[in-house]
Amino acid sequence: MTFPARLNPLRVTFRVIVNPLAAVREIGQTEAPPWWQTFLGLALPVLLVSVIASQWLYQVIPTGLPPEAMPGAWGFGIYSVLAMSIGVLGLTWSAHYLGELFQGRGDADRAMLAVSIGLLPAWVAKVAAAFPWPWGNGIGLLLILYSLWLLYWSLRGILGLRRGNRIGLFVATVFCGAFITLIFGWALMDVIPGATPEIRIGTTWLI
């Protein structure tokens, strides 16, 4: 499979959803493009589509919440793109720097590829979560769990980890990536106008 075909966002997302292990195995056997090319060609387009689609759905499907409890569409959309991009970069550089610690490969290019593949179901989950409860939230949660499982297999297959070090790198990468995203994401929320609602009811506004 050539890189232009492999980095086609629609094709890769469909292939990962339908046959994830085969996709990871196939990608792991080829040379990875530069990390920024994977980010701009695969991760960014998919997360942009997921944000736009989810924000549009929130505007047309009643949420049952008062208007003051919903963030602004543009403000929250910009915040989501930035926060999700930080999440991708945080996970990537965590996997890159922690790879050698767990006797794997410290390779930023392959780490970005593994993280981008692993997060594809999570970005689909963002769209699913915009549908009415309980179906939207239930499907979204299942896709997030699926994404964590796929991230483990992507780190394992694309970074080439040895047995006994795979779970350690996975846990450390998720912890560090989530910590980085939380720190910067929380700061961004207070900076971008309209990213937070006037009244925060539960955690629905954080989706």
Rank of each mutant, 00 (worst) to 15 (best):
F3Y: 09
A5N: 05
A5K: 05
R6E: 08
R6P: 01
L7C: 03
L7T: 03
L7P: 00
L7N: 00
P9D: 02
P9I: 02
V12D: 08
V16A: 04
V16W: 03
V16Q: 03
I17P: 04
V18Y: 15
V18M: 11
P20R: 03
A22S: 12
A23P: 00
A23E: 02
V24W: 06
R25M: 11
R25W: 08
T30W: 04
A32L: 06
W36R: 09
Q37I: 10
Q37H: 11
L40G: 01
G41D: 05
P45H: 13
P45I: 10
P45V: 10
L48M: 13
V49P: 00
V49R: 02
V49E: 01
S50F: 05
S50W: 03
V51N: 07
I52H: 03
A53P: 05
A53S: 10
S54W: 01
Q55L: 14
Q55C: 14
Q55P: 15
L57I: 14
L57E: 07
Y58Q: 10
Y58M: 14
P62D: 09
T63I: 13
M70G: 13
W74C: 12
G75R: 02
G77E: 01
I78E: 01
S80L: 07
V81M: 11
M84V: 10
I86R: 04
L89W: 13
L89T: 03
T92G: 06
W93R: 09
A95D: 06
L98I: 10
G99T: 14
E100K: 15
E100T: 10
L101P: 07
F102V: 10
F102K: 06
Q103W: 15
Q103H: 14
G104M: 12
G104Q: 13
G104K: 15
A108S: 15
A108K: 13
R110C: 05
M112S: 03
S116Y: 04
G118F: 00
L120D: 06
L120R: 02
W123N: 11
A128H: 05
A128W: 04
A130G: 10
G136Y: 03
N137Y: 12
I139C: 08
I139G: 04
G140Q: 07
G140K: 06
L141T: 15
L141I: 15
L143N: 09
L143H: 06
I144V: 14
L145S: 15
Y152G: 08
W153M: 09
L155Y: 11
R156M: 05
L159D: 09
L161F: 09
L161G: 07
R162S: 02
G164H: 05
R166E: 10
V171S: 04
A172R: 10
C176D: 06
G177S: 03
A178T: 04
F179I: 06
I180E: 02
I180H: 05
G185S: 10
D190G: 15
V191H: 15
I192A: 09
I192P: 11
A195Y: 01
A195R: 00
P197H: 08
P197S: 11
T203W: 06
T204L: 15
W205D: 00
